[in-house]
């Protein structure tokens, strides 16, 4: 079966702290999905189990039908790539080029193929001009794009982005939308964790909400952002346009500017 299938997964940290409590989820190949929820809800722990950075205490995770327990780290990178929340946890090479080339070289690809992969990923992430720079000479916002390029060059089928929107300006957000679109076009699956609800509305339809170690909702953005019980449980708020529609007692679950204007015109 294609896709990621997570069955009754529990994760306890070595000190006994339970971070994920009996969670199940299915992600279809080729889709894009946003995971939202409070700090400390377990989002990062949850996605790290999808590429063996953490191993579940209980339960199973399969990717394209293969149990993750059967895969080595090198094999898993072909399947699932994870872009760290803090670029400092991920970057260690002296140039951006070597950083992006690290995994393709590890997989013993021809240097010409490596070059092709690096150039493609760098172009998509808008960092071609920085290939010779040291990643740590780049500002935080750009460093994030280096980490995304690394995972793209790995050729992973499933790409997990952990808070890529943090600290990005408008240009950065627009570029991230473009990267996500391109990855979907290339038949990749994109899983994102973010606190930027406007970014979620602009780019995703399926949303998974986590609160207190569990998934509390898995639905469309319209359903989620008008379900006050869920929003409350996950300490989330309605996005601004929905809030305005709510304050004006408009109907029809408005979540974006387009929907709002259409509704006003309809009157």
């Amino acid at each position: 079966m294609n896709g990621i299938k997570i069955d009754n997964v529990v994760f306890n940290y070595p000190n006994g702290f339970c971070a994920i409590d009996d969670v199940s989820l299915e992600i279809t190949k080729g889709e894009k999905i946003a995971i939202i929820g409070q700090n400390g809800a377990g989002k990062t722990t949850f996605v790290k189990m999808m590429n063996n950075l953490l191993r579940p205490t209980e339960g199973t995770i399969t990717v394209d039908g293969i149990d993750l327990k059967e895969l080595t780290t090198a094999q898993i990178s072909k399947k699932v790539g994870y872009v760290f929340q803090n670029p400092g946890d991920q970057l260690f090479n002296r140039t951006v080029y070597d950083e992006i080339a690290y995994n393709p070289r590890y997989n013993k690809l021809e240097e010409s193929k490596v070059k092709e992969l690096v150039e493609d990923a760098a172009e998509l992430c808008g960092i071609t001009q920085y290939l010779k720079s040291n990643p740590y000479d780049l500002p935080f916002g750009l460093r994030k794009f280096v980490t995304i390029a690394c995972v793209i060059a790995m050729g992973s089928e499933y790409i997990i982005l952990d808070e890529p929107t943090a600290g990005q300006d408008l240009d950065g957000l627009v570029l991230q939308s473009k990267i996500i679109d391109e990855l979907i076009k290339r038949n990749k699956t994109v899983i994102i964790i973010t606190h930027d609800m406007e970014f979620v509305i602009d780019n995703f339809d399926r949303i998974v909400v986590m609160a207190n170690k569990k998934i509390v909702a898995d639905s469309t953005k319209k359903e989620i952002f008008w379900d006050f019980e869920i929003l409350d449980k996950a300490s989330l708020k309605q996005p601004y346009i929905s809030k305005l529609a709510h304050d004006l007692k408009m109907k029809n679950y408005i979540i974006d500017i387009e929907g709002f204007i259409a509704e006003v015109k309809n009157k």
Partner: peptide
């Protein structure tokens, strides 16, 4: 200049440009 505007202001500008002129573009709820 590569900087976002509040969602509310974006809505106001879009409405102002496409539907009818507003006396003031709102920036908060």
């Amino acid at each position: 200049y590569g900087t976002n505007l509040p969602q509310i202001a974006k809505l106001g500008i879009e409405y102002n440009n496409k539907v009818e002129k507003l006396s003031k573009i709102p920036s908060v709820l």
